[in-house]
Amino acid sequence: MRPFKANGWHLLLLVICLALILPVLFMVANSFKTLQDSYHTMWQLIPLHPTLKNYQTLSRQVALLRLIWNTFFMATLVTLGKLSTGLLAAYAFQYFHFRGKRWVYFAFVATIFIPFTVTMIPNYLVIAKANLLNTALGVALPQLCDATGIMIFLKAMAKIPRSLIESAYLDQIPTHRLLMNIIIPILRPSIISIGAIFFINSWNEYVWPTLILKDKSSFTLPLALQNYISSEGGTNFPLAMALATIMIIVPLAIYMVFQRYILNSISNSGLK
């Protein structure tokens, strides 16, 4: 009786897996079909006449390497910014004593609940005034810190034995050396996992970049993909799917390497 019941549940879960994954598989498959084939052999997950034509057309129409570089550069800027400001702030919260600490921490965490619409107009005006429209820095600058990182780092720091820090103090090791040579190496797993999440999120970012990056040469991959989607119909789907396939390789590769780290830190971000 019991295994039979469990099989029913597994069937349901399998259906969910398919519903989540099949769209991606069809997307990749269609990117290797001609427009005609993609229509006539829609259900063929392995293309009958695989072709690189879409990728060739794509590389003629857009500067692919430039797009990838723009996206990579912006995501790296954001990730490094969030990691370094987060580590410094978490260190201050964990090891320094100051008045109003709880309130400052609370204010930092509360920023997670702020809708982007309430800051976008002034931020757009500031970035425009600073002449940073169409630059990666203009996209990155307002998001160089992230309370999620501070939360994760704090939790990891709390696990470091107090005695280790105290003995470092007794030896009069300066704080920045303590941070660089002791804390950061211990925190490596947290840094990798949250860094991977920051990078993936930034790689996929769409809303804020559409406001800042207007010039095609400054586009990131999501913005370029949006250009291939027409709401009036007539989207050349195999072409758009080729670009999307290029776009998902990087997050997927990061996930394959750091899957355990990433899932752990998602779990951690919810458990306070």
Partner: peptide, 18 residues
């Protein structure tokens, strides 16, 4: 289950539009 959350919503929007 976690895999789709790695991808951009622009990708999701395009695939579902298809």
């Amino acid at each position: 289950f976690f895999i789709p959350s790695l991808f951009s919503l622009v990708v999701g929007a395009m695939v579902f539009a298809w």
